[in-house]
């Protein structure tokens, strides 16, 4: 069980780096979606015995993160007619190296963190820290609004991973609420993106500083 879980977390770490290295918007969206699906499946592996509620959450998470949100994003992208190439503030290779350094540091630091004995062998904490770091790098280093949304999604995946540590303590209702919030947020962003595009003819967040008042 723990090795399968670690494999999934390892894949999600790889997807982090893939997100940092992808130079086009659609592939970035795809990576974020894939990570959502991978993480959504994890509660199924964590439970010792099958329970309908957990299965339902897992499937819902996977569907929302893997299908609904990417579709919204793609729709927004198409509606706003965005140029698909990302123009990074921090280049792809430096952000890749940063992400990798962050991941290694996360794996190294996990020995310091006091964990429950059943979580000792798991990569949950490093995986979560790595995803959060990746999200931040994307938020800082990419200037397109939609790529920032992807950064936000990956950051949220990291938070979700951390939440899995508390899977027994946290009511699933909270989980579901977060998911709903996320979907609504992305939906709203999709609409805003469309409006901004119409109003300003650009989606470069660097150019939106004029709105600060």
């Amino acid at each position: 069980m723990s090795s399968g879980l670690n494999l999934l977390i390892g894949i999600s770490m790889g997807l982090n780096l893939l997100a940092l290295g992808s130079s086009r918007l659609p592939s970035l969206i795809r990576v974020a979606a894939a990570q959502g699906v991978v993480l959504g499946l994890m509660p199924l592996l964590m439970e010792h015995h099958f329970s309908w509620l957990v299965a339902l959450t897992a499937v819902t998470t996977a569907v929302v993160k893997g299908v609904v949100i990417p579709t919204l994003l793609r729709h927004a992208m198409r509606a706003a007619n965005i140029d698909r190439d990302l123009d990074p503030l921090i280049g792809f290779i430096p952000s890749l190296l940063l992400g990798a350094a962050g991941t290694i540091a996360a794996v190294a630091l996990v020995r310091v963190v006091p964990l429950l004995p059943e979580h000792r062998g798991l990569l949950l904490v490093p995986g979560s820290v790595a995803a959060i770091l990746t999200g931040f790098i994307l938020l800082i280093a990419r200037s397109k609004a939609i790529s920032q949304v992807c950064g936000y999604l990956i950051l949220d995946n990291g938070v979700y991973l951390f939440g899995l540590l508390l899977i027994h303590a946290m009511p699933l209702l909270v989980e579901a609420g977060i998911l709903l919030d996320l979907t609504v947020a992305v939906f709203v962003i999709g609409i805003i993106v469309d409006r901004i595009q119409r109003a300003f003819d650009s989606l470069d967040t660097r150019k939106l500083t004029a709105l600060h008042e």
């Binding site: 290295g21 290779i93 890749l96 990798a100 290694i104």
Partner: peptide
Amino acid sequence: RVPLLLTTAFLLCLFALLVAWN
């Protein structure tokens, strides 16, 4: 794009090293 791909190769080896260490 070549440096990006080679950096990816480097990172793959680096993570293999990390796995070996752990």
